[in-house]
Amino acid sequence: MRQGNFFRTSVILLLSVWLALFVLIPNLLVLAASFLGRDESGFINLSPGLGNYLRLFDSVYLRVFAHSLWLALLTTLACLGLGYPFAYFLAQFRTSVRPVLLTLVIIPFWTNSLVRTYAIRSLLAARGLLNNTLIALGLIEEPVRLLYTGSAVLIGMVYILLPFMILPLYNAIEKLDHRLLEAAADLGAGRWRRFWQVTLPLTLPGVIAGSLLVFMPALGLFFIADVLGGSRDLLVGNLLKDQFLDARDWPFGAAASMALTGLLFLFLAAYAYSLERFAVEDRP
């Protein structure tokens, strides 16, 4: 029994201590730093206050946050629009082919995202494949500027994050009970009505999970904007990078990071709430 207790205590402690040391405490440190001031000579001085958070309401930073949220929202909607039909059709394939197709979605999911961003960059470059093809087709005469535009960043984001949307959607759609759709058809519901009133509500957890998985990284991936957008499109991720590594204003960076975390918790709470509501509605 003593041996059992020792084993039990050590396996639980090992994981708990690691997470406490490298997740919990660092985040508490950031939280603490966000209330401190900045010293001209050192990094942090001890003058607690809400100054850093108030500075976030400066129009420059508000614009960064608004722009990031807007871009993340567009990315999420684009991924949802492209991914939902994709996952839906995928789930209709023969069970023997599905694992292969699914693996084809998973491979980009795990491929180096920087390498994939670079691939998009070379495709969109002034003398890249897209421009060359358009010129060869005679649609344009001079290369069009595709890189370093807002659309390039959006395309890059969608390209990187699309698999994050497809996988949870597919999981939800695959579980769909087709008898419910048949029942709805028997009761006279047309194709669209079946979709709006049966399929979509039942696959909503997948939609929300996928949207979160796209939305949250979309706020933080600074290198996509760096590589595809040049420096004009400042996002929250870039702001954090600048504050911590270039401007060295840690307390302010910490406040921005906390604001980002707060936003994400808000979305997560909304997700939990919608799941709960969904579960209640599910009951007969």
Partner: peptide
């Protein structure tokens, strides 16, 4: 698992 990489990066750097 869910927290964005950038938030984790910042917190580890501070630690």
């Amino acid at each position: 698992l869910m927290s964005p990489e950038i938030v984790m990066a910042v917190s580890l750097l501070v630690l």
